[in-house]
Amino acid sequence: MKSWFSWLPLTLFLAVIWILLADIPLGLGTLVFALVAALIIVLMSRRLRPFLAKPRRLWVMLKLAATVLADTFQSNTWALGLILKYPKTHIRPGFVTIPLSLRDPHGLAILASIINYAPGTVWAGFPESGDSVELHILDLDPNTDWVAYIVERYEKPLKEIFE
């Protein structure tokens, strides 16, 4: 019975997305096709996932989401200001290596997404050892401790959620 609940929500979600994106009149045929297609996709893709994520601590997830939203807004505002003042500003791009202790692949994927959401930062490299990540920063301020920033704001909550 437990396996039913692992694929049913994703199947329903994909069917709803299909119906919304298909832009065709909703009828019984559309509904049946969406459900069957979603079910086939979910069942076929189950073998591609070595293990399922088991996130915990909803409160930490909510705090992390709020942090990411605030940081993304702040970064977008900063990038807009940089673009508007472009000829007059001196941009100092550079790379930073951030040591990681997060090992869960789901947490690492979310960390990569968080870093890439904000304009001005890009996940530039991840060695096979998985003990660090290379970031490209558009304007590398020498006064900013990027290691502490990434570890405290993003990696630490992700470790609480996934490990």
Rank of each mutant, 00 (worst) to 15 (best):
K2Y: 08
W4E: 05
L10D: 03
L10T: 01
L10W: 01
L12V: 13
L14M: 10
A15D: 07
A15C: 12
A15Y: 04
A15M: 06
I17M: 13
I17P: 00
I19E: 02
I19M: 15
A22T: 10
L28T: 14
G29K: 09
G29P: 01
T30F: 04
F33P: 00
A34W: 01
L35N: 04
A37Q: 11
L39E: 00
I40G: 12
I41D: 02
M44H: 07
M44D: 04
M44G: 09
S45D: 04
S45Y: 00
R49L: 14
P50G: 12
K54I: 12
V60T: 15
V60I: 14
M61L: 11
L62S: 11
A66W: 13
T67L: 06
V68L: 08
L69K: 03
D71Q: 10
F73I: 15
S75D: 04
N76Y: 00
N76Q: 01
N76P: 00
N76G: 03
W78I: 10
A79H: 05
L80H: 02
L82I: 06
I83S: 12
I83Q: 11
L84S: 06
L84D: 02
L84G: 06
K85Y: 03
P87W: 05
K88S: 11
T89D: 03
P93V: 06
V96S: 00
I98T: 04
S101A: 10
L102C: 02
H106T: 07
H106A: 03
G107K: 01
S113K: 06
S113L: 12
I115P: 00
N116P: 02
A118R: 08
V122E: 01
W123N: 09
G125A: 07
F126I: 11
F126Y: 15
S129R: 14
D131A: 08
S132R: 14
S132H: 12
E134P: 02
H136S: 07
H136V: 06
H136L: 11
L138H: 14
L138V: 09
D139K: 09
D139Q: 09
L140D: 00
L140V: 02
D145S: 12
W146R: 03
V147I: 14
V151K: 14
E152A: 10
Y154P: 06
E155M: 04
K156Y: 09
L158K: 08
K159T: 12
F162H: 01
E163Y: 03
